[in-house]
């Protein structure tokens, strides 16, 4: 790979975009409730873990979707360019 050249295989790039789109769609959501251990500290820590990761995973999912969309658009750009 060189930074002096820009090129792409649009079909392969489209496939990558599709894969990433599927990966984003297949990410698990947060469905389980708030089980208790009977200990306030542990329950709070477990809740914090779940809440933080739910937010973080939502952000990661958004980035995977965005990357998928950008891969598709880049593929289209190169198709139009005759790449």
């Amino acid at each position: 790979m060189t930074t002096q050249r820009i090129a792409a295989q649009p079909a392969a790039l489209t496939s990558i975009g599709t894969h990433l789109g599927s990966a984003a769609a297949g990410l698990p959501g947060s469905r389980y409730g708030r089980p208790s251990t009977g200990d306030a500290t542990a329950d709070a820590a477990l809740h914090e873990f779940t809440a933080r990761w739910t937010d973080h995973l939502r952000g990661l999912e958004e980035i995977v979707r965005l990357t998928a969309r950008q891969a598709q658009l880049t593929a289209l750009a190169f198709r139009i360019a005759g790449g």
């Binding site: 060189t2 050249r5 792409a8 392969a12 894969h19 990433l20 990966a23």
Partner: peptide, 18 residues
């Protein structure tokens, strides 16, 4: 899936700064 996508990019699906 991400590893597959990365390998695809690295093998020439896209070349350059992008």
């Amino acid at each position: 899936t991400l590893r597959t996508a990365t390998a695809g990019l690295a093998s020439g699906a896209l070349v350059g700064p992008c």
